[in-house]
Design a protein around this nucleic acid. Structure first.
Lengths: 280, 280
DNA sequence: ACGAAACAGTGTGCGCTATACACGATTAAG
DNA sequence: CTTAATCGTGTATAGCGCACACTGTTTCGT
């Protein structure tokens, strides 16, 4: 394993994780001596994000980022402790702030709007989905999204820790579904030789390997045509209620459905508890 | 980007993705000429999994795996097209088959049992959570879990594609939540110097950066003590109904809550539709 | 039976990676 | 003006994935 960020100490009083957080939040204690730094963490992160946007996460190397800035590789280490940390800074910066969903609609719509915006973020920067989440939301932007979800859920009738649970649950589901969708999308864009799109290839694979004896349910769904790229007539209704996720239709519909069931459950749970509280 | 698995062709008729799937499913077309292979894909994958179990995913290199088998690095490439592919094979093999949940209880309990088992898998092999999912469930084990979820949801009253949506939704949420929990767990285990555990450090960080002006909801929850490692009295009730995920209690409770709300929503949705169908 | 073709495993080498370390140049504190 | 801290650079190391050429083995076509 690389550097475990447990209780290490760099010589001064602050632990490693503490300094990491200070970097995330740009707590800049100005250096007291020595030459003026020619770079800022901001610049480095933004250059790295630029590289990732242009050529993917795999193209982000210390050398490439430094070259982009006209500096040498090692100079970056004056600002960042490791590449791993740089990637985390990138991830936080690149999600950007959550949209300002006014007081437009009810809390359910707000949650859905927020989730749609989150998907949109990840769709525009597919490499974000390849950055692994290292823990609970810590950076400014991550925390801003967290805050936004909690705010959206403020009046849904759930207790504090319950709202946290729902937020994390939704985030996880959305991220994972978006990952699948984006990957399909990319494969589809890259597919040149054969006519069949990646979705069709997947359907064909299922048809081949999901034998009814061992995988009866999957096989039945395959037979239904659920996994066919173009939803067959009467198949999954794409984007009900005008919910457009900008994703492969099928996955978008999946998110919509799962999210709405979850919110249904939240609603009924809150209602029931309110009722209990009233009679108690 | 590395190798896009779009429509490449290796000379024979089968596309790259096709050959990948055949390897996942161990479709062995025996070679017609030449010496007998001294290794099998099975051995290689199992050796690689052993390395990952022992020293983490970062320790898995072609050299290391080959050395473990007493072969040279390059010999592995006779069986596997790339390291990326090997990792995928590892991921599929390492989750193992889903547990056989009998006809014990209702579909809700079956889904919860399955999810608990999935979390347990990832808890015992934390490196699994660091392997990025590359697409819809394709490997034998991945598909077996998919099948198990669909089977568990068979009698919940949902249509086919709706069950798919719920399955993917749950999988995503469970995976992401488990990732956070495992990371906290590891950090806690590695934390030696300072007394405060990683959870406490996170709570402290939130207390420092989640100022009420910009993050009122988060700040309020921090003040409530929701993020404190030891749940304060009256805080989040740990493991209601005896639901033990083997994880950090707080995250386990999060999964339980989110999952049950989702299933609540599924139940009411199915009931309502059945009712509609009855009156139609 | 025999040449040819296919295949297994090895050795070498290339380009790339992160990053440790020592060094000169620069700046501010005492 | 000394001294300590810092910035940026140059150099070096250990490791990585993997392309390629090569030897030796096995089996097919004849």
């Amino acid at each position: 394993m690389a550097t475990q960020r447990g209780g290490g100490d760099g010589g001064d009083g602050r632990s490693e994780i503490e300094r990491h957080l200070e970097l995330l939040w740009r707590v800049a204690e100005r250096p007291r001596r020595g030459p003026r730094p020619g770079l800022t963490v901001e610049e480095i992160v933004s250059a790295a994000v630029g590289v990732a946007d242009a050529d993917g996460l795999g193209a982000v190397s210390m050398q490439r980022v430094a070259a982009e800035l006209g500096y040498t590789t090692m100079s970056l280490y004056r600002y960042v402790q490791s590449k791993e940390q740089l990637v985390e800074l990138m991830a936080d910066a690149a999600v950007g702030p959550p949209p300002d969903i006014g007081e437009a609609a009810g809390w359910r719509d707000r949650v859905e709007l927020l989730s749609r915006a989150l998907v949109e973020c990840n769709r525009r920067r597919p490499w974000l989905l390849r950055v692994e989440i290292v823990g609970p939301p810590s950076g400014p932007m991550q925390l801003a999204w967290f805050e936004a979800y909690l705010e959206a859920l403020a009046e849904c009738g759930l207790a504090g820790y319950e709202r946290v649970a729902v937020t994390l649950f939704i985030n996880g589901a959305v991220r994972e579904l978006a990952r699948i969708a984006v990957q399909i999308e990319q494969a589809r864009r890259a597919g040149g030789v054969s006519d069949e799109s990646a979705g069709a290839a997947y359907a064909a694979a299922l048809r081949r390997f999901a034998v009814p004896e061992r995988f009866p349910n999957v096989a039945a769904l395959v037979a239904e045509g659920v996994f066919d790229p173009e939803p067959a007539d009467g198949g999954p209704v794409a984007a009900p209620d005008g919910a457009d996720w900008g994703l492969v239709d099928e996955i978008g519909a999946d998110i919509t459905f799962g999210l709405r069931r979850l919110l249904d459950g939240v609603e009924s749970y809150a209602r029931e508890r309110e009722h209990q509280a009233g009679t108690a």
